[in-house]
Design a protein around this nucleic acid. Structure first.
Lengths: 171, 171
DNA sequence: TAAGTTTGTTTCAAACTTGAACCAAGTCGA
DNA sequence: TCGACTTGGTTCAAGTTTGAAACAAACTTA
């Protein structure tokens, strides 16, 4: 099959997307690095923990929610543990497992830095788009995420019947 | 001023966006790493060069188009130069400057790997959204990019009159 | 129940990114 | 035309990410 190249509308959209996502991530990373001393992903880890029951989550679970690899998470949690924001605990039911727990200190850090973070996200994104666009963005991203979620391959071959989906939100 | 937290629509959109952008970048990076032996940003560098007149661009110019820092670009170009995909040339008019040039080898690599890349982008994004959504995505991203473009601070203080903008597309 | 497989997590080396510091080479005003 | 500032790029150390390999604890099954 010969390649279906992008139409010029698609090209424009793709380029705009690449630019926007780079600029946005950079802006957020810079802001959080300054105010919280950590990059966005690390902040997201804390945020996810703060919303979990008992502020604790199994490593793999946390990796799935934050959409990062397990090894990246291991590194991040080790660092956050040094900072005192997170604590690791063994899992009694499954001795292989380990659980990340948000400490009080971590919670405090989160509460202290959340306003600045939200301001940044607002200034960069939500203050620049209309309420309809918020909905549109969600729909688009949800479709994309649904398609890629738990996908091992990028282009599911036609001979594979179907793949698992996972429900629920993320950070 | 007390923080304006995200509404629940905004939260949903934001989470969906974070998830989608991580998954998408990962998928593309994996695909390109396999087929082209380089991450997405490096591919973008080559792609940008290929479209430039005479396939050459000043470093700073290239950094601006790809939305990456100068030091990151320096590193990347050094690597791509080792691979033989790019060549550096001094700039006659401005002796400080250096110019990155896409080699024939680099162009070949690009041509060879472009189809697979486009397929991935299609499978992950464009095949999952409607033509209207393509337009919506572009609008949204363009707004965000416009807001962040060449912004040194994330939240321009009110006492600063205005900031420069730059026109044109990117990759 | 030993052997083989899967699952949860960490480890390690190599590659990449960051930001600050640095070095020219241009520019500008007195 | 000197000195101060800006601009274009690179360098360096510290931090982060990647993917493959290693481990160990569950499972599965003959």
């Amino acid at each position: 099959m010969t390649t279906r190249w992008l139409t010029s509308e698609e090209q424009r959209a793709w380029r705009a997307y690449i630019a926007a996502s780079h600029l946005l991530e950079d802006a957020i990373d810079r802001q959080l690095q300054q105010e919280a001393g950590m990059p966005h992903v690390y902040y997201s880890i804390l945020a996810n923990l703060s919303e979990a029951p008992d502020r604790r989550l199994r490593m793999t679970d946390l990796a799935e929610r934050t959409k990062i690899t397990r090894s990246r998470l291991t590194y991040a949690v080790t660092r956050l543990e040094k900072d005192g924001a997170v604590r690791r605990e063994g899992c009694p039911s499954d001795k292989r497992g380990s659980t990340a727990v948000l400490t009080d200190e971590g919670m405090t850090l989160l509460e202290r830095t959340a306003p600045g973070h939200v301001d940044t996200v607002r200034a960069a994104l939500f203050d620049r788009i209309s309420p309809e666009q918020v909905g549109q963005l969600e729909e688009i991203c949800a479709s994309v995420a649904r398609g890629l979620e738990g996908d091992d391959a990028q282009a599911p071959p036609d001979d594979v019947p179907w793949r698992r989906r996972s429900p629920g939100p993320c950070t």
